[in-house]
Every structure is written in C-alpha cells, then in structure tokens.
Amino acid sequence: MPTRKLTQLALYTALSLAIFALESVIPPLAPIPGIKLGLANIITLVLLERYSPRDAFLVLLCRILLSALLFGQALSLLYSLAGGLAALLVQMCLRKRLGRRHLCLVGAFGGLFHNLGQLLAALLVTGTLGVLAYLPHLVLAGILAGLFTGLCASFLLQKLPPV
C-alpha cells in the first residue's frame, strides 16, 4: 500500500475512533442494548465511496480492535464485530448496485443489518430466545440511525476535496 494512502486510512481510523469515543460519552438513548446512533458508520460509508470495500474493511477492523483495547470494551468486542461486519457486507453489496444519491438507503440497510448481526450474536452468546423480544425495537432503531449516518455521510462527501 502506498504511504500516502496508508496515512490517509490511518487518519480515517483515528477519526472513526474519535467519533466512537465521543458517542460512548453520550448517555445511551434507550436502556436497550444495541440502540445507538452508530456515528462511526459515517466513516465506513465515506471509505466505501472514496476508496474500496477492502480499505473500509481494514479501517473498520482496526477501529473495533482499538476501541476494545482503549476503552476497555473487550466484553462487547464480539457484538461490535458481528454488527460491524454485517453492516459493512450489506453496505458494500448495495453500494455496488446503487449510486451515490442513494447513500441514505445504503446507510439504512447498514444500520438494520448492524442490529440484526448484534442480535444474532446476543442470541448465540446468551443462548436465550428471550432476547428476541427486542427485535422490533432494534429494527426500528437500526433503520433510523442508519438513515441518519447515511445523511451525514452524503453531506460530508459534498464537502470533502477529491482524493
């Protein structure tokens, strides 16, 4: 990887880590595990748009591992991975098919699949079907939060200078 790109990706990783840290200081929106804005997804969307799925994957993975190390959230590493990778995968596929104008839609599906991935992880980890009771909350929250991060990403892309 050329040094210039490596540096840029490192900066994006630092940025997403900062966004993640900032969000973890905000009190949770609802007392249900998994309901949050997921602002760090803005970076994933921007990277998918400006770089490649592979780069987005690298930055996401670094962000998740670093946040687990830095903020002592190793307990939730599994949930972050399940949600983050599910979201990346679906956003990657959709971005390939949809234009930039539909970034909100891509983000909404990302949010939805993030929460579905996390719920699946929770289901496997707790081994208790009872957690499925939160499925409707998580579907709603995921779509709304994803729409929001998609909107943020489109605004950001308009302002960013070309690569």
Partner: peptide, 28 residues
C-alpha cells in the same frame, strides 16, 4: 461498562426480559 441492565429498571410484567449482554445474563 454501559450499565444498561441497571437502566432497564424494575419489571413487573412479562413483556420484555432484562438483559445484561456483557455478562450474558438474562432475566426472563
């Protein structure tokens, strides 16, 4: 870290479980 299980409060009906994901604890 997040204390979401505490914020879920006290339950007196059978609608939703109390969940503490980090500790894999579910009260159904």
């Amino acid at each position: 870290p997040d204390k979401l299980c505490v914020r879920q409060g006290f339950r007196h009906d059978a609608l939703y479980p109390i969940v503490c994901l980090p500790h894999r604890l579910v009260i159904r």
